[in-house]
Write a protein that binds this DNA or RNA. Sequence first.
DNA 1: TTATGATTAGTCAATATTGACTAGTCAGGA
DNA 2: TCCTGACTAGTCAATATTGACTAATCATAA
Lengths: 167, 167
Amino acid sequence: MERELLLLGLLRQMDMHGYRLAEFIERDLATCTDLKKPTAYFLLDKMVKQGWITQHQAQEGNRPPRRVYRITPEGEEQFQQLLRENLTNHTPAKFIGDIGLSFVDVLARDEALTLLHQRRIALEADLAAARAVPKHDGAWQLLIEHRVVHLEAELRWLHEVLGRLAG
Amino acid sequence: MERELLLLGLLRQMDMHGYRLAEFIERDLATCTDLKKPTAYFLLDKMVKQGWITQHQAQEGNRPPRRVYRITPEGEEQFQQLLRENLTNHTPAKFIGDIGLSFVDVLARDEALTLLHQRRIALEADLAAARAVPKHDGAWQLLIEHRVVHLEAELRWLHEVLGRLAG
DNA sequence: TTATGATTAGTCAATATTGACTAGTCAGGA
DNA sequence: TCCTGACTAGTCAATATTGACTAATCATAA
């Protein structure tokens, strides 16, 4: 339900049309979740059916009409409940990079080292990018720092692994 | 393609029937990936169609016949390629817990602290469990250590967040 | 003015994923 | 022996997800 939580949380801040929501999520929230446009519409439709949000048409100038969504009191209640669940439960991240690592001894040591070295380069670039994000206000700042903390830990670990493989 | 990589990697070690594969993944690899039984069969069928593996029936005693899968040379080639890609590319983990955190200021400070405190308890339990896993051999040990490293970083960060919220 | 490419808003068919189910087998006790 | 509950192996309908597409509008530049 974390996607629903996200959509409700955004609609709670202001009414929005589907395209705007989906675009915001895909562009600015890529580090938390990946949720594509058709999925967003699917979930929005579902939440309309469940009565958590309402949908109405809105025309602006000559533009084609838009579906604007608004949260309902039932939606707000859901949001509150989902938020509490999400904050309480620690849901560990899945590291899909680990799958390859579990087979690393299939490769010759030199090749493995070369490939993991490339991974480290990519990781360092990610970390630099995350550190370069300007200070935000409020809770978003937490997420940015979380990302930095995680990438730093990842980098230290990868360094360790490279060292162990090398000698 | 990380699920295919995993299935091919396991079949590469020995022929297996679908149920065994799915059970192993669900029980022992839950920290890397979540892949349910029907998904495993779906992917196995797909890989048979693509010629990466073959399927044959095997009877054992009175038991119902099983579908046993075996990797083909084309499958081995795929495996090698997928493994190299997986080792090279750093694919950052998604933190779905962050979605809730981004809305944390919706709640009164005391309630947020209580909920996040519960999260910390759960996290500490996870960490203790991860540390208690006995030493494995080879690459599996890497994954266990990765998990510990990640959980430690997560715990430090949560501690930081709690401190900041509190004061 | 009109051609070109980018942006907007959403759709659709194809693919992926899963919860809940079935139908057989086995192990152990009454 | 027969019953019960657990295990084995897989299926199926329902749900979720996405790549690729459409069709309109807007920006700009020749």
